[in-house]
């Protein structure tokens, strides 16, 4: 019997309402309210917002770890975007960092953290990001361009310089989000300037396999240091549904650039983590027809290779060399 491939979730969030401002949830609730049946009484927006927030009470990640275990997910990258520059936030980016560090300490070996710091916090924010990386061992930078900046804006360069020096990847949100934020700074092609200027930094287009996919896959194909993740796939706007959409994406010759991500807890009311991984791997599922090395790379290998060396959980030199060989095989064997 062929063992199941290892899974590292490359895009996940701590379901903690302390880390996400009320204004973010309010925007999501506004969109839900617009979708309500026309003859139904208008929903109470505050109540709807509270119902959304009530799904974000897993502050210590105990529930998440249980769900990861059910789904045989070995490790998870927690993304901690900084919304504190654009929303009134309960937690500052320092508080968010401390909470994520506490989660890592509570569940050793299960989480990596990509911390967000809005670049407009300037030198102070930049210094804190570096301190958090050094003190907590965080493994990447999360940026959220819908907060109102291009991912190639010079204001981000000091943060990218830290990432270049420390071998950290940068993950950036692409595509629409809560309607209270800006969408025109969320196109994948906007990373081009930064990707050229910082060739030693690897950039991951979050939701790139779901939003603006044509742009995202071209960036991945032609920029060596640009990758995409498939987080958000259960809700992809594609006529054939997510299975057909991903099967098409996996046939484009860029599987060595594609990373699995669940975007938990965003889809926790639709598919839990086990349903997501099972749906990808099941007979007839989008991963079922791919060569084993490609499956392993999408589900774990590629995100693992982008983490700083200290975080790649005992990877020997020989193993690392094998991974490089696998990556080359995938590139040459893809359908």
């Amino acid at each position: 019997m062929v063992p199941l491939p290892r899974v590292i979730d490359g895009h996940c969030h701590l379901a903690s309402s302390r880390c996400i401002p009320h204004g973010f949830f309010l925007g999501v609730a506004q969109n839900i309210a617009r979708k309500m049946p026309r003859h139904a009484p208008p929903p109470d927006l505050d109540k709807l917002t509270r119902m959304l927030i009530s799904q974000y009470e897993d502050h210590d990640a105990d529930k998440l770890v249980a769900k990861m275990d059910e789904a045989s997910i070995e490790r998870t990258v927690l993304l901690a975007p900084d919304f504190s520059h654009v929303f009134d936030a309960q937690y500052s980016y320092e508080d968010v960092a401390r909470q994520h560090a506490a989660v890592r300490a509570r569940h050793p070996g299960r989480f990596h953290v990509f911390l967000g710091v809005d670049p407009r916090w300037g030198r102070q924010g930049c210094d804190y990001f570096e301190k958090a990386v050094d003190e907590y061992g965080f493994e990447g930078l999360k940026i959220y361009p819908p907060c109102g900046y291009s991912p190639s804006d010079a204001v981000l360069f000091p943060l990218y310089e830290i990432c270049a020096a420390k071998g950290l990847p940068v993950l950036l949100h692409t595509g629409p989000t809560t309607p209270t934020l800006q969408f025109d700074t969320a196109a994948p092609s906007l990373i081009d300037g930064a990707a050229r200027r910082f060739p030693a930094v690897n950039f991951i287009l979050a939701h790139g396999g779901v939003n603006f996919v044509e742009q995202a896959k071209l960036m991945c194909n032609y920029r060596p240091n640009v990758y995409l993740d498939i987080s958000g796939f259960p809700a992809v706007m594609a006529p054939g549904g997510w299975r057909a959409h991903l099967a098409d994406l996996f046939a484009q010759g860029i599987n060595h650039k594609i990373i699995f991500g669940s975007d938990w807890p965003v889809f926790s009311m639709k598919d839990d983590l086990k349903a997501m991984t099972a749906g990808l791997l099941e007979e007839g599922g989008p991963l079922a027809r791919l060569p084993r090395p490609a499956v392993e790379a999408i589900l774990a290998g590629t995100i693992e290779s982008l983490l700083p060396a200290r975080a790649q959980h005992p990877v020997s030199t020989a193993k690392a060399a094998r991974h490089e060989t696998n990556a080359r095989e995938i590139a040459s064997n893809e359908c």
């Binding site: 969109n31 839900i32 979708k35 309500m36 049946p37 709807l48 959304l52 809700a235 965003v266 889809f267």
Partner: peptide, 15 residues
């Protein structure tokens, strides 16, 4: 049902 639809359903259930 998507997450959004289930939240809509819960709102209708309350009403």
């Amino acid at each position: 049902l998507e997450s959004v639809n289930r939240l809509m359903l819960m709102t209708l259930v309350e009403q």
